[in-house]
Amino acid sequence: MADVPTNAPIECPGTQSQQAGKVSACNGCANQQLCASGASLPPDPAIEIIKQRLQTVKHKLLILSGKGGVGKSSFTAHLARGLATNEDEDIAILDIDLCGPSIPRIMGVEGHQVFQSMSGWSPVFVEDNLSIMSIGFLLSGPADAVIWRGPKKNGLIKQFLRDVNWGELDYLLIDTPPGTSDEHISIAQYLKGAGVDGAIVITTPQTESQIFPPTTGGGRQMAIDMDVPFIGKIPLDPRIGKCCDEGISYFSEVPDSPATKAYKNIIEEIRKFCASKPANDASEVEN
């Protein structure tokens, strides 16, 4: 079935629920009869619009983690900065961690504003070839809370994909919330037509000294179990967190550190992976 319409009541059980169209929240909804019948809703027209909008984006990568606090957003930021060292490539981050949008702070552009033109929303630029879009730019202050149910989150993610003027990009990195939630379902559905090259999963432990001894083999064993590539590990360095808090590039501050070398090796593996995929060819991507 298609996703919940953006104008659905906040208590909407969702089209996949056995209670769809049958509970009190459904009263008055234009889709009540259709949901109750179990028939499929028509495809959201935004999927095709987003496909057309993202035709100028060569590679799209999701950044995921099973829980919070493992360094997912900081990895996304470092991956973007590392890719952007090639001045011939254009990189962007879409931050869909709607309840905890940390990317603007990590990238040093907290407090900047998003402008709208005839061609859509303009992302905030960190460098000439590195831009960002985040709900953090739409809030009045960093202390503001976002307490939204699924349909409203779904609507904003759709708007980010449909209405942001990304321009021509080599890589669009999508920073997602930890775990699995409405945001993940929405981004997968809306990118179904545009295609995704793959996902990068961030796990812990990640230190050579084994501060947290693995009980299941860690990320390497998980990669083996799931038959996916293990692309590397990053040694723990408190300077990474310090640079993220200050919104500066760790690569520039500590260019010869073991963590910088590890990041660069991982970025090279990601480049190789994306080079093996047809650029912006949704037909080659399993959804």
Rank of each mutant, 00 (worst) to 15 (best):
S119I: 14
P43F: 07
T207I: 04
C29F: 03
M1Q: 12
G232H: 11
V254E: 14
K51T: 07
G136H: 01
L41R: 15
G136P: 00
R105D: 00
D245A: 07
K233N: 15
E11H: 10
G218H: 06
P213R: 10
A84H: 06
M118C: 03
M222T: 04
Q221T: 15
E284A: 14
G179C: 09
P104N: 05
D237V: 11
P101S: 03
H112C: 07
N27C: 05
K264S: 09
S181P: 08
M133H: 08
A77E: 11
S140F: 05
S24I: 08
I147P: 06
W166L: 02
D95P: 02
P123K: 09
D227R: 13
N265I: 08
G100S: 07
V254D: 15
D3G: 15
V4Q: 05
A199Q: 02
P104S: 08
C26L: 02
L41Y: 13
K233A: 13
I135E: 06
L79G: 03
A223W: 03
G232P: 02
Q18D: 14
S40Y: 03
L161R: 08
I231H: 12
S181C: 10
G232R: 12
C35A: 14
A39L: 11
V23A: 12
P43G: 01
D197N: 14
I231D: 04
P5V: 04
A46Q: 12
V146M: 07
G66Y: 05
D245I: 04
P123Y: 05
I187P: 01
P205E: 14
I224R: 07
I234D: 06
S257K: 02
F230T: 12
K67D: 12
G71P: 04
N287S: 13
D88T: 09
G241P: 07
P45H: 10
E87Y: 05
E110P: 05
L62V: 01
G69E: 01
I224V: 11
E110G: 11
L79V: 04
S73D: 06
R162Y: 04
D175P: 00
I185A: 08
P278S: 01
L130F: 12
Q113P: 01
V57A: 07
G111I: 04
A223G: 10
R239W: 01
G247H: 05
P5N: 03
N7C: 00
T260D: 11
D170A: 12
K158Q: 14
D44N: 14
T180N: 13
E208P: 06
L83K: 10
K51G: 02
S276D: 13
G120E: 02
P177S: 09
G247F: 05
T56I: 10
G232C: 08
A20M: 09
G68I: 03
Y171W: 09
K242G: 13
A199T: 05
C274T: 08
I224M: 13
V4A: 14
Y250W: 01
A39Q: 13
T76K: 00
A77M: 15
N86R: 10
S40K: 11
C12E: 06
G195D: 08
D256C: 08
C243A: 13
T176A: 03
T56N: 15
